[in-house]
Write a protein that binds this DNA or RNA. Sequence first.
DNA 1: GTGGTCTAGACCACG
DNA 2: GTGGTCTAGACCACT
Lengths: 122, 122, 122, 122
Amino acid sequence: MITVDYKDKRPIYVQLVDNISTMALSGELKPFEQLPSVRQLAVSMGINPNTIARAYGELERKGVIYSVAGKGSFISNDLSVFAEEKIKKVEEKLRVGISEAKNSGVSKERLIVIVGEEYDRD
Amino acid sequence: MITVDYKDKRPIYVQLVDNISTMALSGELKPFEQLPSVRQLAVSMGINPNTIARAYGELERKGVIYSVAGKGSFISNDLSVFAEEKIKKVEEKLRVGISEAKNSGVSKERLIVIVGEEYDRD
Amino acid sequence: MITVDYKDKRPIYVQLVDNISTMALSGELKPFEQLPSVRQLAVSMGINPNTIARAYGELERKGVIYSVAGKGSFISNDLSVFAEEKIKKVEEKLRVGISEAKNSGVSKERLIVIVGEEYDRD
Amino acid sequence: MITVDYKDKRPIYVQLVDNISTMALSGELKPFEQLPSVRQLAVSMGINPNTIARAYGELERKGVIYSVAGKGSFISNDLSVFAEEKIKKVEEKLRVGISEAKNSGVSKERLIVIVGEEYDRD
DNA sequence: GTGGTCTAGACCACG
DNA sequence: GTGGTCTAGACCACT
Protein backbone atom coordinates (compact mmCIF):
# COMPACT_ATOMS: atom_id res chain seq x y z
CA MET A 1 0.00 0.00 0.00
CA ILE A 2 1.04 3.58 -0.69
CA THR A 3 1.25 5.61 2.50
CA VAL A 4 2.36 8.97 3.80
CA ASP A 5 3.39 10.04 7.28
CA TYR A 6 2.20 13.46 8.36
CA LYS A 7 4.83 13.57 11.10
CA ASP A 8 7.50 13.25 8.45
CA LYS A 9 8.89 16.68 7.60
CA ARG A 10 9.28 15.87 3.94
CA PRO A 11 6.50 17.23 1.72
CA ILE A 12 3.73 14.78 0.96
CA TYR A 13 4.51 14.69 -2.74
CA VAL A 14 8.16 13.80 -1.98
CA GLN A 15 7.09 10.97 0.29
CA LEU A 16 4.85 9.65 -2.46
CA VAL A 17 7.68 9.84 -4.98
CA ASP A 18 10.09 8.06 -2.63
CA ASN A 19 7.63 5.36 -1.62
CA ILE A 20 6.47 4.56 -5.13
CA SER A 21 10.05 4.61 -6.44
CA THR A 22 11.09 2.17 -3.76
CA MET A 23 8.15 -0.10 -4.45
CA ALA A 24 8.96 -0.06 -8.16
CA LEU A 25 12.64 -0.86 -7.56
CA SER A 26 11.86 -3.67 -5.13
CA GLY A 27 9.41 -5.23 -7.56
CA GLU A 28 6.42 -4.66 -5.31
CA LEU A 29 5.05 -2.70 -8.24
CA LYS A 30 5.65 -4.50 -11.52
CA PRO A 31 6.40 -3.05 -14.96
CA PHE A 32 3.25 -2.03 -16.88
CA GLU A 33 1.24 -2.29 -13.67
CA GLN A 34 -1.35 0.45 -13.50
CA LEU A 35 -1.22 2.85 -10.58
CA PRO A 36 -4.39 4.14 -8.96
CA SER A 37 -5.72 7.13 -10.86
CA VAL A 38 -4.91 10.57 -9.53
CA ARG A 39 -8.43 11.13 -8.26
CA GLN A 40 -8.84 7.62 -6.91
CA LEU A 41 -5.63 7.79 -4.88
CA ALA A 42 -6.52 11.30 -3.78
CA VAL A 43 -9.82 10.26 -2.21
CA SER A 44 -8.45 7.02 -0.76
CA MET A 45 -5.61 8.88 0.96
CA GLY A 46 -7.57 12.01 1.82
CA ILE A 47 -5.13 14.11 -0.16
CA ASN A 48 -5.75 16.76 -2.77
CA PRO A 49 -5.57 15.47 -6.37
CA ASN A 50 -3.09 18.22 -7.25
CA THR A 51 -0.62 16.81 -4.75
CA ILE A 52 -0.93 13.32 -6.23
CA ALA A 53 -0.57 14.74 -9.73
CA ARG A 54 2.59 16.52 -8.69
CA ALA A 55 4.06 13.28 -7.36
CA TYR A 56 3.09 11.38 -10.52
CA GLY A 57 4.65 14.14 -12.60
CA GLU A 58 7.94 13.84 -10.71
CA LEU A 59 7.88 10.08 -11.06
CA GLU A 60 7.38 10.37 -14.79
CA ARG A 61 10.25 12.85 -15.09
CA LYS A 62 12.46 10.36 -13.27
CA GLY A 63 11.40 7.54 -15.55
CA VAL A 64 9.76 5.48 -12.83
CA ILE A 65 6.29 5.67 -14.36
CA TYR A 66 4.70 6.90 -17.56
CA SER A 67 1.35 8.61 -17.75
CA VAL A 68 -1.09 8.52 -20.61
CA ALA A 69 -3.84 11.12 -20.61
CA GLY A 70 -7.14 9.35 -20.88
CA LYS A 71 -5.69 5.99 -19.89
CA GLY A 72 -3.84 6.21 -16.60
CA SER A 73 -0.38 5.93 -15.08
CA PHE A 74 1.82 2.85 -15.34
CA ILE A 75 5.11 1.56 -13.97
CA SER A 76 7.92 1.83 -16.54
CA ASN A 77 9.26 -1.38 -18.00
CA ASP A 78 12.86 -0.17 -17.91
CA LEU A 79 13.90 1.19 -14.53
CA SER A 80 17.65 0.86 -15.15
CA VAL A 81 18.20 4.58 -15.75
CA PHE A 82 16.41 5.45 -12.55
CA ALA A 83 18.21 2.72 -10.62
CA GLU A 84 21.59 4.04 -11.71
CA GLU A 85 20.70 7.58 -10.73
CA LYS A 86 19.51 6.34 -7.39
CA ILE A 87 22.74 4.46 -6.69
CA LYS A 88 24.77 7.52 -7.64
CA LYS A 89 22.83 9.69 -5.24
CA VAL A 90 22.91 7.18 -2.45
CA GLU A 91 26.68 6.70 -2.75
CA GLU A 92 27.28 10.43 -2.86
CA LYS A 93 25.15 10.91 0.22
CA LEU A 94 27.12 8.17 1.92
CA ARG A 95 30.44 9.78 1.07
CA VAL A 96 29.28 13.03 2.62
CA GLY A 97 28.19 11.13 5.71
CA ILE A 98 31.51 9.33 5.97
CA SER A 99 33.38 12.58 5.58
CA GLU A 100 31.32 14.16 8.34
CA ALA A 101 31.83 11.18 10.60
CA LYS A 102 35.56 11.34 10.00
CA ASN A 103 35.64 15.01 10.89
CA SER A 104 33.66 14.29 14.03
CA GLY A 105 36.33 11.88 15.15
CA VAL A 106 34.70 8.57 14.28
CA SER A 107 37.42 6.03 13.50
CA LYS A 108 37.61 4.07 10.29
CA GLU A 109 37.26 0.83 12.24
CA ARG A 110 34.09 2.13 13.89
CA LEU A 111 32.68 2.95 10.48
CA ILE A 112 33.35 -0.55 9.22
CA VAL A 113 31.63 -1.94 12.29
CA ILE A 114 28.59 0.25 11.64
CA VAL A 115 28.44 -0.85 8.02
CA GLY A 116 28.50 -4.46 9.16
CA GLU A 117 25.84 -4.01 11.84
CA GLU A 118 23.52 -2.07 9.61
CA TYR A 119 23.97 -4.19 6.52
CA ASP A 120 23.28 -7.46 8.27
CA ARG A 121 20.20 -6.28 10.13
CA ASP A 122 16.80 -7.91 9.65
CA MET B 1 36.42 32.11 7.08
CA ILE B 2 32.73 31.68 7.73
CA THR B 3 30.83 31.20 4.50
CA VAL B 4 27.34 30.43 3.28
CA ASP B 5 26.10 29.07 -0.02
CA TYR B 6 22.84 30.57 -1.24
CA LYS B 7 22.26 27.65 -3.59
CA ASP B 8 22.31 25.32 -0.61
CA LYS B 9 18.77 24.43 0.32
CA ARG B 10 19.50 24.63 4.05
CA PRO B 11 18.45 27.93 5.63
CA ILE B 12 21.25 30.44 6.03
CA TYR B 13 21.08 30.28 9.80
CA VAL B 14 21.47 26.49 9.72
CA GLN B 15 24.50 26.78 7.47
CA LEU B 16 26.03 29.24 9.89
CA VAL B 17 25.37 26.93 12.82
CA ASP B 18 26.83 23.93 10.98
CA ASN B 19 29.90 25.77 9.76
CA ILE B 20 30.77 27.38 13.07
CA SER B 21 30.16 24.10 14.92
CA THR B 22 32.47 22.27 12.55
CA MET B 23 35.15 24.93 12.88
CA ALA B 24 34.91 24.73 16.65
CA LEU B 25 35.15 20.93 16.65
CA SER B 26 38.09 20.89 14.28
CA GLY B 27 39.95 23.47 16.36
CA GLU B 28 39.87 26.09 13.63
CA LEU B 29 38.06 28.18 16.23
CA LYS B 30 39.66 27.77 19.66
CA PRO B 31 38.02 27.77 23.09
CA PHE B 32 37.49 31.30 24.47
CA GLU B 33 38.06 32.74 21.01
CA GLN B 34 35.74 35.65 20.37
CA LEU B 35 33.34 35.53 17.47
CA PRO B 36 32.55 38.63 15.42
CA SER B 37 29.62 40.57 16.80
CA VAL B 38 26.23 40.04 15.23
CA ARG B 39 26.32 43.41 13.50
CA GLN B 40 29.92 43.00 12.38
CA LEU B 41 29.32 39.60 10.83
CA ALA B 42 26.05 40.80 9.33
CA VAL B 43 27.64 43.61 7.37
CA SER B 44 30.76 41.63 6.43
CA MET B 45 28.64 38.80 5.01
CA GLY B 46 25.81 40.92 3.65
CA ILE B 47 23.31 39.02 5.73
CA ASN B 48 20.41 40.24 7.81
CA PRO B 49 21.43 40.66 11.49
CA ASN B 50 18.32 38.71 12.53
CA THR B 51 19.71 35.69 10.71
CA ILE B 52 23.08 35.95 12.45
CA ALA B 53 21.39 36.42 15.80
CA ARG B 54 19.29 33.34 15.21
CA ALA B 55 22.39 31.31 14.39
CA TYR B 56 24.22 32.53 17.50
CA GLY B 57 21.16 31.68 19.57
CA GLU B 58 21.16 28.12 18.25
CA LEU B 59 24.88 27.78 18.85
CA GLU B 60 24.46 28.94 22.42
CA ARG B 61 21.59 26.55 22.97
CA LYS B 62 23.77 23.71 21.70
CA GLY B 63 26.65 24.70 23.96
CA VAL B 64 29.05 25.53 21.16
CA ILE B 65 29.37 29.18 22.15
CA TYR B 66 28.46 31.34 25.11
CA SER B 67 27.50 34.97 25.15
CA VAL B 68 28.43 37.60 27.70
CA ALA B 69 26.17 40.60 27.75
CA GLY B 70 28.06 43.66 26.64
CA LYS B 71 31.17 41.72 25.75
CA GLY B 72 30.30 39.38 22.89
CA SER B 73 30.15 35.71 21.96
CA PHE B 74 32.91 33.15 22.58
CA ILE B 75 33.68 29.56 21.71
CA SER B 76 32.89 27.26 24.64
CA ASN B 77 35.64 25.75 26.70
CA ASP B 78 34.15 22.27 26.83
CA LEU B 79 32.66 20.99 23.60
CA SER B 80 32.46 17.37 24.73
CA VAL B 81 28.69 17.35 25.18
CA PHE B 82 28.16 18.84 21.78
CA ALA B 83 30.72 16.51 20.25
CA GLU B 84 28.89 13.49 21.60
CA GLU B 85 25.57 14.74 20.26
CA LYS B 86 27.18 15.32 16.91
CA ILE B 87 28.63 11.83 16.75
CA LYS B 88 25.26 10.33 17.60
CA LYS B 89 23.57 12.25 14.83
CA VAL B 90 26.28 11.53 12.32
CA GLU B 91 26.19 7.81 13.06
CA GLU B 92 22.42 7.71 12.83
CA LYS B 93 22.52 9.52 9.50
CA LEU B 94 25.11 7.05 8.31
CA ARG B 95 22.98 4.08 9.31
CA VAL B 96 20.09 5.47 7.30
CA GLY B 97 22.40 5.98 4.34
CA ILE B 98 23.75 2.44 4.61
CA SER B 99 20.26 1.05 4.80
CA GLU B 100 19.24 2.97 1.69
CA ALA B 101 22.33 1.87 -0.17
CA LYS B 102 21.62 -1.75 0.76
CA ASN B 103 18.06 -1.45 -0.55
CA SER B 104 19.36 0.05 -3.77
CA GLY B 105 21.50 -3.00 -4.36
CA VAL B 106 24.89 -1.70 -3.27
CA SER B 107 26.94 -4.61 -1.94
CA LYS B 108 28.55 -4.69 1.48
CA GLU B 109 31.96 -4.97 -0.16
CA ARG B 110 31.29 -1.87 -2.21
CA LEU B 111 30.34 0.00 0.96
CA ILE B 112 33.59 -0.97 2.63
CA VAL B 113 35.49 0.21 -0.42
CA ILE B 114 33.67 3.55 -0.30
CA VAL B 115 34.45 3.94 3.40
CA GLY B 116 38.11 3.31 2.65
CA GLU B 117 38.26 5.68 -0.30
CA GLU B 118 36.46 8.45 1.46
CA TYR B 119 38.22 8.08 4.79
CA ASP B 120 41.70 8.15 3.32
CA ARG B 121 41.11 11.13 1.06
CA ASP B 122 43.12 14.34 1.40
CA MET C 1 2.52 -3.09 -39.18
CA ILE C 2 0.72 -0.15 -37.67
CA THR C 3 1.98 0.57 -34.16
CA VAL C 4 1.54 3.10 -31.37
CA ASP C 5 3.73 3.96 -28.42
CA TYR C 6 1.89 4.75 -25.22
CA LYS C 7 4.90 6.55 -23.80
CA ASP C 8 4.80 8.93 -26.73
CA LYS C 9 3.18 12.16 -25.62
CA ARG C 10 1.27 12.52 -28.89
CA PRO C 11 -2.33 11.35 -28.69
CA ILE C 12 -2.92 7.85 -30.01
CA TYR C 13 -5.05 9.08 -32.90
CA VAL C 14 -2.25 11.46 -33.98
CA GLN C 15 0.27 8.65 -33.90
CA LEU C 16 -2.03 6.56 -36.07
CA VAL C 17 -2.44 9.42 -38.53
CA ASP C 18 1.31 10.03 -38.69
CA ASN C 19 2.23 6.38 -39.06
CA ILE C 20 -0.32 5.59 -41.74
CA SER C 21 0.54 8.78 -43.62
CA THR C 22 4.20 7.88 -43.57
CA MET C 23 3.51 4.34 -44.72
CA ALA C 24 1.39 5.67 -47.58
CA LEU C 25 4.05 8.14 -48.66
CA SER C 26 6.83 5.58 -48.50
CA GLY C 27 4.82 3.11 -50.56
CA GLU C 28 4.54 0.61 -47.77
CA LEU C 29 0.81 1.05 -48.20
CA LYS C 30 -0.11 1.19 -51.89
CA PRO C 31 -2.84 3.21 -53.64
CA PHE C 32 -6.25 1.49 -53.54
CA GLU C 33 -4.98 -0.85 -50.82
CA GLN C 34 -7.69 -1.49 -48.27
CA LEU C 35 -7.11 -0.59 -44.64
CA PRO C 36 -8.42 -2.78 -41.82
CA SER C 37 -11.89 -1.80 -40.73
CA VAL C 38 -12.25 0.41 -37.69
CA ARG C 39 -13.50 -2.47 -35.57
CA GLN C 40 -10.89 -4.88 -36.87
CA LEU C 41 -8.01 -2.55 -36.16
CA ALA C 42 -9.52 -1.62 -32.80
CA VAL C 43 -9.55 -5.17 -31.52
CA SER C 44 -6.20 -6.12 -33.06
CA MET C 45 -4.51 -3.13 -31.42
CA GLY C 46 -6.49 -3.12 -28.21
CA ILE C 47 -7.57 0.45 -28.85
CA ASN C 48 -10.94 2.11 -28.49
CA PRO C 49 -12.82 2.13 -31.84
CA ASN C 50 -13.58 5.82 -31.35
CA THR C 51 -9.87 6.51 -31.48
CA ILE C 52 -9.41 4.57 -34.71
CA ALA C 53 -12.42 6.27 -36.24
CA ARG C 54 -11.00 9.65 -35.32
CA ALA C 55 -7.69 8.78 -36.97
CA TYR C 56 -9.41 7.55 -40.14
CA GLY C 57 -11.46 10.75 -40.21
CA GLU C 58 -8.31 12.86 -40.04
CA LEU C 59 -6.65 10.80 -42.74
CA GLU C 60 -9.66 11.23 -45.02
CA ARG C 61 -9.72 14.98 -44.39
CA LYS C 62 -6.05 15.16 -45.35
CA GLY C 63 -6.63 13.16 -48.51
CA VAL C 64 -4.47 10.22 -47.50
CA ILE C 65 -7.34 7.75 -47.59
CA TYR C 66 -10.91 7.65 -48.83
CA SER C 67 -13.85 5.77 -47.42
CA VAL C 68 -16.60 4.02 -49.30
CA ALA C 69 -19.74 3.47 -47.29
CA GLY C 70 -20.30 -0.22 -46.76
CA LYS C 71 -16.99 -1.21 -48.32
CA GLY C 72 -14.21 0.21 -46.18
CA SER C 73 -11.26 2.63 -46.27
CA PHE C 74 -8.59 2.73 -48.96
CA ILE C 75 -5.31 4.49 -49.62
CA SER C 76 -5.78 7.40 -52.01
CA ASN C 77 -4.63 7.20 -55.58
CA ASP C 78 -3.09 10.65 -55.68
CA LEU C 79 -1.10 11.65 -52.62
CA SER C 80 0.62 14.60 -54.28
CA VAL C 81 -1.43 17.25 -52.47
CA PHE C 82 -0.75 15.63 -49.14
CA ALA C 83 2.91 15.14 -50.00
CA GLU C 84 3.30 18.84 -50.76
CA GLU C 85 1.64 19.81 -47.50
CA LYS C 86 3.90 17.43 -45.68
CA ILE C 87 7.03 18.85 -47.27
CA LYS C 88 5.97 22.37 -46.37
CA LYS C 89 5.44 21.40 -42.76
CA VAL C 90 8.63 19.42 -42.54
CA GLU C 91 10.67 22.26 -43.99
CA GLU C 92 9.08 24.80 -41.68
CA LYS C 93 9.79 22.57 -38.70
CA LEU C 94 13.36 22.23 -39.87
CA ARG C 95 13.79 25.99 -40.15
CA VAL C 96 12.60 26.40 -36.60
CA GLY C 97 15.03 23.72 -35.49
CA ILE C 98 17.91 25.35 -37.34
CA SER C 99 17.09 28.71 -35.84
CA GLU C 100 17.05 27.22 -32.35
CA ALA C 101 20.33 25.42 -32.96
CA LYS C 102 21.89 28.65 -34.17
CA ASN C 103 20.74 30.48 -31.06
CA SER C 104 22.16 27.69 -28.91
CA GLY C 105 25.57 28.22 -30.44
CA VAL C 106 25.69 25.35 -32.91
CA SER C 107 27.88 26.34 -35.85
CA LYS C 108 26.76 26.26 -39.46
CA GLU C 109 29.49 23.75 -40.22
CA ARG C 110 28.23 21.48 -37.45
CA LEU C 111 24.74 21.66 -38.91
CA ILE C 112 26.01 20.63 -42.33
CA VAL C 113 27.83 17.72 -40.73
CA ILE C 114 24.65 16.63 -38.95
CA VAL C 115 22.66 16.83 -42.17
CA GLY C 116 25.25 14.64 -43.87
CA GLU C 117 25.40 12.09 -41.05
CA GLU C 118 21.66 11.83 -40.70
CA TYR C 119 20.87 11.82 -44.39
CA ASP C 120 23.30 9.07 -45.24
CA ARG C 121 22.29 6.79 -42.39
CA ASP C 122 20.89 3.30 -43.01
CA MET D 1 10.68 41.59 -20.96
CA ILE D 2 9.18 38.25 -20.05
CA THR D 3 6.11 37.52 -22.12
CA VAL D 4 3.64 34.76 -22.89
CA ASP D 5 1.43 34.21 -25.91
CA TYR D 6 -2.03 32.89 -25.18
CA LYS D 7 -2.42 31.76 -28.79
CA ASP D 8 0.60 29.53 -28.33
CA LYS D 9 -0.53 26.00 -27.59
CA ARG D 10 2.28 25.36 -25.15
CA PRO D 11 1.32 25.69 -21.49
CA ILE D 12 2.06 29.07 -19.95
CA TYR D 13 4.61 27.64 -17.55
CA VAL D 14 6.51 26.02 -20.44
CA GLN D 15 6.59 29.30 -22.32
CA LEU D 16 7.98 31.00 -19.25
CA VAL D 17 10.65 28.33 -18.85
CA ASP D 18 11.65 28.57 -22.51
CA ASN D 19 11.70 32.35 -22.60
CA ILE D 20 13.69 32.79 -19.42
CA SER D 21 16.11 30.02 -20.41
CA THR D 22 16.73 31.70 -23.74
CA MET D 23 17.22 35.08 -22.10
CA ALA D 24 19.70 33.57 -19.67
CA LEU D 25 21.65 31.81 -22.44
CA SER D 26 21.77 34.91 -24.62
CA GLY D 27 23.02 37.01 -21.75
CA GLU D 28 19.92 39.19 -21.65
CA LEU D 29 19.64 38.01 -18.07
CA LYS D 30 23.00 38.01 -16.35
CA PRO D 31 24.36 35.61 -13.70
CA PHE D 32 23.27 36.52 -10.16
CA GLU D 33 20.63 38.86 -11.58
CA GLN D 34 17.46 38.73 -9.51
CA LEU D 35 14.26 37.71 -11.23
CA PRO D 36 10.96 39.33 -10.35
CA SER D 37 9.42 37.65 -7.34
CA VAL D 38 6.76 35.05 -7.94
CA ARG D 39 3.97 37.33 -6.75
CA GLN D 40 5.33 40.40 -8.50
CA LEU D 41 5.60 38.68 -11.88
CA ALA D 42 2.20 37.11 -11.31
CA VAL D 43 0.42 40.43 -10.92
CA SER D 44 2.41 42.17 -13.66
CA MET D 45 1.53 39.40 -16.13
CA GLY D 46 -1.98 38.76 -14.89
CA ILE D 47 -1.08 35.14 -14.18
CA ASN D 48 -1.65 33.04 -11.09
CA PRO D 49 1.37 32.88 -8.74
CA ASN D 50 1.22 29.08 -8.75
CA THR D 51 1.91 29.06 -12.48
CA ILE D 52 4.93 31.33 -12.07
CA ALA D 53 6.16 29.20 -9.17
CA ARG D 54 5.88 26.10 -11.33
CA ALA D 55 7.97 27.73 -14.04
CA TYR D 56 10.58 28.88 -11.52
CA GLY D 57 10.68 25.38 -10.08
CA GLU D 58 11.38 23.88 -13.50
CA LEU D 59 14.06 26.46 -14.17
CA GLU D 60 15.75 25.63 -10.90
CA ARG D 61 15.63 21.90 -11.67
CA LYS D 62 17.30 22.62 -15.00
CA GLY D 63 20.00 24.72 -13.34
CA VAL D 64 19.05 27.96 -15.05
CA ILE D 65 18.13 29.74 -11.83
CA TYR D 66 18.36 29.13 -8.12
CA SER D 67 15.74 30.13 -5.62
CA VAL D 68 16.28 31.10 -2.01
CA ALA D 69 13.22 31.14 0.22
CA GLY D 70 13.00 34.52 1.84
CA LYS D 71 15.37 36.16 -0.64
CA GLY D 72 14.21 35.57 -4.18
CA SER D 73 15.19 33.84 -7.42
CA PHE D 74 18.43 34.46 -9.27
CA ILE D 75 20.08 33.52 -12.56
CA SER D 76 22.71 30.79 -12.06
CA ASN D 77 26.33 31.76 -12.53
CA ASP D 78 27.18 28.52 -14.33
CA LEU D 79 24.85 27.74 -17.20
CA SER D 80 27.21 25.31 -18.91
CA VAL D 81 25.33 22.19 -17.80
CA PHE D 82 22.08 23.60 -19.05
CA ALA D 83 23.68 24.81 -22.28
CA GLU D 84 25.03 21.35 -23.02
CA GLU D 85 21.66 19.73 -22.37
CA LYS D 86 20.04 22.27 -24.62
CA ILE D 87 22.45 21.60 -27.48
CA LYS D 88 21.90 17.87 -27.14
CA LYS D 89 18.15 18.29 -27.35
CA VAL D 90 18.29 20.72 -30.20
CA GLU D 91 20.58 18.46 -32.23
CA GLU D 92 18.42 15.43 -31.57
CA LYS D 93 15.34 17.34 -32.64
CA LEU D 94 17.17 18.39 -35.77
CA ARG D 95 18.14 14.83 -36.60
CA VAL D 96 14.53 13.76 -36.33
CA GLY D 97 13.54 16.64 -38.59
CA ILE D 98 16.19 15.74 -41.15
CA SER D 99 15.10 12.13 -41.10
CA GLU D 100 11.49 13.15 -41.68
CA ALA D 101 12.48 15.49 -44.47
CA LYS D 102 14.48 12.74 -46.13
CA ASN D 103 11.54 10.36 -45.94
CA SER D 104 9.30 13.04 -47.43
CA GLY D 105 11.55 13.24 -50.45
CA VAL D 106 13.50 16.38 -49.64
CA SER D 107 16.94 16.12 -51.24
CA LYS D 108 20.19 16.49 -49.34
CA GLU D 109 21.08 19.51 -51.47
CA ARG D 110 17.79 21.16 -50.62
CA LEU D 111 18.48 20.61 -46.91
CA ILE D 112 21.87 22.26 -47.21
CA VAL D 113 20.26 25.21 -48.96
CA ILE D 114 17.70 25.53 -46.16
CA VAL D 115 20.42 25.42 -43.54
CA GLY D 116 22.26 28.20 -45.37
CA GLU D 117 19.17 30.36 -45.82
CA GLU D 118 18.01 29.96 -42.27
CA TYR D 119 21.41 30.32 -40.63
CA ASP D 120 22.29 33.53 -42.45
CA ARG D 121 18.95 35.24 -41.82
CA ASP D 122 18.72 38.54 -39.91
C1' DG E 1 8.87 40.66 1.98
C1' DT E 2 10.49 35.76 -0.18
C1' DG E 3 9.76 30.82 -2.08
C1' DG E 4 7.43 26.14 -0.99
C1' DT E 5 3.49 23.45 -0.14
C1' DC E 6 -1.27 22.26 0.04
C1' DT E 7 -6.31 22.55 -0.69
C1' DA E 8 -10.37 23.46 -3.54
C1' DG E 9 -12.53 23.69 -7.64
C1' DA E 10 -12.58 24.33 -12.51
C1' DC E 11 -11.81 23.39 -17.66
C1' DC E 12 -9.55 20.94 -21.40
C1' DA E 13 -8.24 17.10 -24.66
C1' DC E 14 -8.05 12.25 -24.93
C1' DG E 15 -9.95 7.35 -24.78
C1' DG F 1 -13.26 7.74 -17.07
C1' DT F 2 -8.02 9.59 -17.55
C1' DG F 3 -4.01 13.06 -16.90
C1' DG F 4 -2.64 18.17 -17.63
C1' DT F 5 -3.20 22.90 -16.70
C1' DC F 6 -4.80 26.94 -14.43
C1' DT F 7 -6.98 29.91 -10.89
C1' DA F 8 -7.89 31.21 -6.10
C1' DG F 9 -6.70 31.43 -1.63
C1' DA F 10 -4.35 29.76 2.37
C1' DC F 11 -0.39 28.55 5.66
C1' DC F 12 4.49 27.78 6.58
C1' DA F 13 9.52 28.82 7.37
C1' DC F 14 13.02 31.99 6.28
C1' DT F 15 15.13 36.84 5.54
